[in-house]
């Protein structure tokens, strides 16, 4: 029985993965609190806690206890329980179903590794690896060499985007559309921004995304979306007005937004007017 214990532990950790193959069971594991409130109006909270937290907690404790018995190493048991709980709780909260599958797989892989390799061996492996690294990179032994590096990364990941902290997300993804900003006159002709104003199109873009972050994802209601666009468009115009260098020699300023798409190697643009102002 003792020899079978580790495999039993592994099986327990992988139960959610098996359940996920049967939609009518996984349905209850994947619902959020709102869903449980609609399914079980009178008992949604305890059932939600059982589905989301009780199983991972029980499975985690049980597998940790089993591994402790199997390997006669309490440290492994504690480590297994903690890591598995963190993995499942953290990734369980993700809306991405694929991530949840990964969390269960990771938990299973971790258990398998710990079953095969004893804790003491893992400790010696890590220590040997560290010494190997130190021999080739002696600067790692001096904490002053990288303390600012570590602190700044950790703080930037934890804190919001405020000077001097930032996650530098520039071009961290390439969406399937791009937006540019321009102004046109009453004849529809493009007017260079620097002719009358200091901010450029890039500045308008920065402000646009900064303001749009306050609104939920673009509304399907056209009148609501038009209202948002108008409000943001007015803000863009006010930025231009606050930094005007010369009186515009045109009667009407249209603050427009152009959206660019790509399809089959061809580029397509769609332009809308965010705000219109008659110059007095």
């Amino acid at each position: 029985m003792k020899r079978q214990l580790p495999y039993l532990t592994l099986f327990l950790a992988l139960i959610p993965l098996i359940f996920n193959r049967y939609h009518w069971i996984s349905f209850y594991f994947e619902g959020d609190l709102q869903a449980y409130r609609s399914w079980f109006p009178n008992a949604f909270l305890p059932l939600y806690i059982i589905a989301k937290f009780f199983y991972p907690a029980v499975a985690g404790c049980w597998s940790a206890w089993l591994l402790t018995k199997a390997t006669a190493n309490r440290r492994i048991g504690v480590l297994t329980g903690v890591v598995q709980a963190v993995l499942v709780f953290y990734l369980e909260g993700s809306r991405d179903r694929g991530l949840r599958w990964i969390s269960y797989d990771l938990a299973g892989l971790l258990l398998l590794t710990l079953v095969i390799i004893r804790g003491r061996d893992i400790y010696f492996m890590i220590r040997r690896g560290w010494h190997w690294l130190l021999a080739r990179a002696p600067w790692l032994s001096d904490g002053y060499t990288y303390f600012i590096f570590c602190f700044y990364i950790i703080l930037s990941l934890l804190l919001p985007e405020v000077q001097p902290f930032s996650r530098y997300p520039m071009y961290s993804q390439f969406p399937d559309h791009a937006q540019t900003f321009l102004i046109r006159d009453e004849h529809g002709k493009m007017v260079p921004l620097h002719r009358y104003f200091t901010p450029g199109a890039a500045d308008l873009s920065h402000l646009y995304y900064h303001l749009m972050a306050q609104y939920p994802v673009s509304s399907s209601d056209q009148s609501v979306q038009a209202s948002i666009d108008s409000t943001v468009g007015r803000a863009l115009y006010q930025l231009l007005l606050a930094n005007q260098t010369a009186r515009p020699g045109i009667d009407t300023i249209y603050v427009n937004m152009q959206t660019i798409h790509i399809s089959s190697g061809q580029f397509y643009t769609n332009e809308i007017t965010l705000y219109k102002h008659c110059v007095e």
């Binding site: 390439f174 399937d176 660019i260 790509i262 580029f267």
Partner: peptide
Amino acid sequence: DSPYLTLQIIKSFDYAYYTSG
């Protein structure tokens, strides 16, 4: 996603175009 990089390229150059003319 490198094909969509082209949109960012056009966007960047258009920023300069709409700013300077």
